[in-house]
Simulated assay, not measured.
Amino acid sequence: MPGTAVVVTDSTASLPADVAESRGIVVVPLQVVIGATVYDEGPEGATPEMVAEALREFRPVSTSRPSPAYLAEVYAKLAADGAPEILSVHLSAEMSGTYESALLAVRDAPVPVTVVDSRQVGVATGYAALSAVDVLGAGGSVAEAAEAARARADAATSLFYVDTLEYLRRGGRIGATAALVGGALAVKPLLRIQDGRVVSLDRVRTSARALSRLEDLVVEAAGEQRVDLCVSHLANPDRAGDLAGRLAERLADNLGGREVWCGELGAVLGAHVGPGMVAVCVAPLLRS
């Protein structure tokens, strides 16, 4: 809406398209490179199915950030459309150069742009962007909205199970030693995002035990708080759906009638975790 500060985020925030559109959030795509072809992440470009297939076939898959020039164009267009200020909320700078691109783009922006490093990956960044919109919608300043985004992201817990650490190793998101140990022991790793990075949380012998442990960890993270909850997967819909159903029952009081989001992880993040991954984000609501 002209005259109102606009929130920008990136495609790794994993917001459903209808949610982003209805809340006025502008989503900037990251890119996926499959073989020699570059695609924007999204339904018209790189999809999770494409990435999962390429990984299974051992075709080269990599990802790249949006360029500073591209983000500068986005900011300029929003300014031309009447945005007096922009708040740009992005995935962890420890995991991607997107935050750095945004900082560089700010130099050429015709209106003030505040850039937030969520220190998170996936829908935890999306929830941070939504909280920023809530603050702006209630008449808060961009500075207050940025603080709300940081607080929501900091309070969120992002946990995930992977079939193998190999894809994270290839992308440099986890150390080669950790990947080697995990493979040698034939364990199913449980991981989390901590201080903006992927860290090892636990190792479990079977997939079933790993997902059961993941469920318990999510319930523990929720505690007595009111929360939003999202279950994501890559090429593992049955297990993700079962987990979402169990969590909806166990955390019914925490959810207060809000639905558990459940869907396939985006292509960019999927490229780094591989088929079979199941992730859960539990994001406590900010106190009014």
Rank of each mutant, 00 (worst) to 15 (best):
G139R: 06
L251Y: 01
A93C: 09
S67L: 00
A279L: 11
L185Q: 05
D154L: 14
L285G: 03
A109T: 06
D81Y: 14
L91K: 11
V231F: 00
E57G: 00
D10P: 05
K77Y: 13
F160G: 02
V26S: 12
L15V: 15
I86G: 00
A149Y: 11
P16F: 07
T37R: 05
L103G: 06
V106M: 06
S101N: 11
M277N: 06
S212R: 10
V278M: 15
E49N: 06
V74I: 01
S22C: 13
T63W: 01
A208F: 10
E73P: 04
A186I: 10
M50D: 08
A93R: 12
V260N: 04
L211C: 05
V123E: 01
S22A: 13
D154P: 13
G223C: 06
A138G: 13
L185M: 13
R173C: 04
V8T: 07
R197A: 15
E166P: 01
V27A: 08
V142A: 07
S207E: 13
C230L: 00
L190A: 09
T206W: 15
L71Q: 03
P2S: 08
G137W: 02
L78M: 15
L217P: 04
V19K: 07
L214P: 03
G24N: 13
P189V: 07
V123F: 01
V181I: 10
V135Y: 02
E94Y: 12
S101E: 07
D81E: 11
A153P: 07
A252C: 04
L15K: 07
G274S: 00
R23V: 14
R287H: 08
M50S: 10
Q194V: 05
L78C: 15
A283M: 03
R203A: 10
L165A: 11
P43G: 15
S158L: 12
G175Y: 01
P60N: 14
A93N: 14
I25D: 10
P60Y: 13
A178N: 01
A54H: 00
G223E: 03
D242T: 11
D154S: 15
A83C: 09
I34W: 09
V74Y: 01
A46G: 08
V218C: 04
G35F: 13
L104D: 09
T4K: 14
